[in-house]
Amino acid sequence: MIRGSDVSEYLSRSTFVFTGTVSQAGASSLSQIEATEHTAIVRVDEVHFAPEVLRQYAGGLVTLIGQTAEGLAGEQQALFFTNVSLYGETLAVQEVARMHAPKEPDIVHREIAGESERRDEMRLRERISSAELVVRGEVVGLAPAETELGRGSEHDPNWWRATIRVLEPLKGGSPGKTIELWYPNSRDVQWYRSPKPLPGQQAIWALHREGDVKGLTALSEFDVRPADEIEVQRVKRLLRESLS
C-alpha cells in the first residue's frame, strides 16, 4: 500500500522520480561511479517527475547509488525517488527513497502531477510574503533611472524606472495612485532574467527592497504575474495565508 503522505514527502526531496527495473545489481554504467553493492544499473520504465530535459528519458539507463544494497536484485521493479548527481552517456542518480512499484498508479500520478505547480506556488508565496508592496497595476511610463552614462561594467544593471498606475492594491498602495518600480534593463547574464516591464503592461507586481537598489524593484519571475482573475485570486489567497 502506497501512502500519499509518503509519496509527497519523498517527492519534496527529489528531482527525478521514475518507475524502473534493476538491470544489473552491483554495477555501474558510468566510469566516474565505482560499482559497489550499493549501485545498480536500472532501466527507466516510466518517468513520473523530472526536469524538462529528462522527461523523455523512459527506456534509458541510470546508475542508481542506493541508500542500501537491500532489494537491488535483478529484474526487481520499484518506484525510485532520486536526485541526479552526474549527467553522462547515462545518468547517475542518488537514491532518496524507494517504494514497491505502484500497483495503484493513480495515487502516484495524482501526487506527482501537481508537484511542479506546488513548487512554483511555494516560491510565489515566499516572494509575496516578503514583498513591501503588492498591487495589480498598469505600466504608464518607462524611463532611464540614472542620468549617468553607466557603470562601465558588462554587468551594469542599467536601471530604468517603470511608473505603474495602481488598479487594485493587494498589499499596500492606493487605487489610482502611481508607484515606481526600478528594473534592470540590461541583457547581461546577471540581469537578463529579471522582468522587463512593457508599455501598457498590466500585471500583479510584488515590489521588494533589494540590496543597494535605490527604489522598489521586482527581480524574480515570481514578482510579476499575469493580471487575470485566477491569478489575482491566488495571490489574494496566498497573502491571506501568509498573514494567518
Partner: peptide
Amino acid sequence: PAGGSLAPVYVSEDGGLTWALAP
C-alpha cells in the same frame, strides 16, 4: 538541469573524448 543548488562543470576522464556534467 535539475535546478539544484550546486552549479555544474563538465568532467572528462579520457582526455576530453567524452564528457559528463557534474554539479
